[in-house]
Design a protein around this nucleic acid. Structure first.
Lengths: 141, 141
DNA sequence: TATACTATTGATAACGAATCTCATTACCTC
DNA sequence: GAGGTAATGAGATTCGTTATCAATAGTATA
């Protein structure tokens, strides 16, 4: 039982492209809606599957939004990094932080933990959203 | 319209106690099951409400598990801290990290972001679980 | 190029966490 | 006590996500 080989379908490519076209983190639902609006007949389940695949292949980062839905974003592969995310518009900046990596590692070891992992993300309002300061959130991330 | 006064019910107290009795992060569902098993007739919706209240009052910390459910834990109130969490048994250690606080703040400002917030948690296997090294995860956190 | 094999797709059903509804209960003040 | 009203809880509802399964379409081979 060898691993089944992956096939190249226009659906996967469409998801990859749509994801790359977006600045910030998007939900599977929103990405599906965007694709449909642009004329693609792609199915919702397929979008979920494609995003999950991209995530395990390291082509996309994923995180849990505050209300529990999974958000995805195209990311520079093969490089560990964190995110600075705008709460309002979803604009995302990739950040590196060797110091934080080392800190996480050492604090785990210090307490006898092994195989450390970490979740480090910074949320805020980006420069533009800070100025505009909407009375209520606009494009929900 | 002044703020409605909170009432003390045995239900809220039961949730507070059950939460304090647990070492790590627990879901509302699990906490409800535990309470029912110990003979309490408390309702599920009430557990959800009580946990949400404890979280806003600062008596409990909450985080999103990897599969998107909210987990809660009794915590030392009024003090900002992060967590070192065992992926296997849920054992949690509170950790402080002024350096990380400062880093998050400065990286946000550096990129023009305001009102920074951050999510910083370290996951791993605690000393005990590292030794035992179960073939498959045991008490799901 | 034609054919067979099978991974992938997608409409829909199923699932599960969380919230809402609303009649009933019980906490608190007077 | 008695009245006002927040809190409760069983069940319905919402909503994101996953499972089902017949139909479709990549891919390899002849």
């Amino acid at each position: 039982m060898t691993a089944p080989r992956k096939r190249n379908t226009w659906q996967r490519e469409a998801v990859r492209t749509a994801l790359a076209d977006d600045d910030g983190f998007v939900s599977a639902q929103r990405l599906h809606a965007t694709l449909r609006e642009s004329g693609s007949p792609i199915g919702l389940a397929t979008v979920y599957r494609a995003l999950a695949d991209l995530a395990v292949e390291g082509e996309a980062d994923s995180l849990q939004s505050l209300d529990g839905e999974s958000l995805y974003r195209a990311c520079t592969p093969g490089q560990h990094h964190h995110h600075l995310i705008c709460r309002n518009c979803g604009l995302t900046v990739e950040i590196e932080a060797d110091a934080v990596e080392r800190w996480a590692q050492s604090v785990a070891i210090e307490h006898g933990f092994t195989q450390p992992n970490h979740v480090v993300d910074v949320f805020g309002l980006c420069a533009e959203c800070s100025v505009t300061n909407w009375p209520e959130p606009r494009p929900p991330v």
